[in-house]
């Protein structure tokens, strides 16, 4: 189980690295599908079928919208090497050096906090469900819903769902405003 998940996550990492380095934006968007569909398989293996159904459709709709954007703009990526050539002599590009150092600082900082936080976590597969114990034991009597995820989503934590719907409507209003071509006089 763990080995299979590790292989799939490695495949997702490889797909995302190719996504960030592809020269053609269309192939980058398609390679991004490796990450998304790998995530779907991970959800299925981790016994989360609700998420797998939602993720696989969301992935396809994201792909449609991204291809629509690329169709009406350009497909070519901006290329930039790590070195530049001036009068036959190669110099290290100062910008990429600065980016490299910044990225290294970020990695070290995030690694520090990651190690500190995962030391307090349970190892994989041994989850002490402190919060969800009530949901698991009395969820069916309290909500009457056989699917505990729906019970948590719409009864115990309905405020979160309301906030999610609000974010969705705000995003739609923002998109309609940004994509309006002619301004109102």
């Amino acid at each position: 189980m763990e080995a299979l998940l590790a292989v799939i996550i490695l495949l997702m990492i490889a797909g995302s690295i190719y996504t960030l380095h592809a020269r053609d934006l269309l192939s980058a968007v398609i390679a991004y599908g490796i990450t998304g569909f790998g995530l779907v398989i991970c959800f299925l293996l981790l016994k989360a079928p609700d998420l797998a159904i939602a993720q696989i459709v969301v992935e396809i709709i994201t792909l449609i919208i991204m291809i629509a954007v690329i169709r009406i703009s350009t497909r070519e990526d901006l290329t930039e090497g790590a070195t530049i050539k001036v009068e036959g002599v190669r110099y290290v590009n100062l910008r990429s050096a600065v980016y490299f150092v910044t990225g290294l600082l970020f990695v070290v900082g995030f690694l520090y906090f990651f190690v500190k936080s995962t030391l307090n976590l349970d190892p994989f597969g041994v989850h002490s469900a402190r919060m969800a114990q009530v949901y698991l034991e009395q969820g069916v009597e309290l909500t009457g819903s056989a699917n505990l995820v729906a019970g948590v989503l719409f009864d115990f934590r309905a405020y979160d769902t309301l906030g999610e719907a609000t974010i969705l409507i705000t995003a739609v209003v923002g998109i309609l405003t940004v994509l309006r071509l002619k301004g109102r006089k």
Binding site: A132, L148, V152
Partner: peptide, 10 residues
């Protein structure tokens, strides 16, 4: 498995 993270991630 824990239903709480699934509901949030959904």
């Amino acid at each position: 498995v824990d239903p709480l993270p699934q509901a949030m991630v959904l």
